[in-house]
């Protein structure tokens, strides 16, 4: 990790993204755009936890596929299910 992107800034970004999610909860979240933003934020937070907290950067492709694959499938299915309504 470089000087700007390190475990401390990862924590800070995760907190800020959580606060953004919280603030967005006060907007009427029926819209497609807001739904996309919220799920993208959740996905980005998930990537940071897998990569930087779990330390999966540099591990074999199989484990990356399993972890990022789980995150992608869950976020996509939720997104599609909500946009279908």
């Amino acid at each position: 990790m470089n000087k700007l992107y390190n475990i401390h800034t990862v924590w800070l970004m995760l907190v800020l993204l959580t606060l953004i999610t919280y603030c967005l909860s006060f907007i009427d979240t029926n819209g497609t755009a807001i739904m996309l933003v919220l799920m993208t934020v959740a996905f980005v937070k998930g990537v940071m936890i897998i990569r930087d907290y779990m330390g999966l950067k540099g591990v074999s492709l199989l484990w990356k596929i399993i972890m990022y694959g789980w995150l992608t499938v869950v976020c996509l299915v939720i997104l599609v299910a909500y946009l279908l309504v």
């Binding site: 999610t21 919220l38 799920m39 934020v41 959740a42 936890i49 779990m54 869950v74 939720i78």
Partner: peptide, 22 residues
């Protein structure tokens, strides 16, 4: 730590799903 991060990861999805998106 890996187990603990898994608990964290799951909550990251659960928070918007249950509390926020509608």
């Amino acid at each position: 730590g890996s187990y603990w991060h898994m608990v964290d990861l799951v909550w990251i999805i659960m928070f918007p799903l249950i509390y926020v998106i509608r």
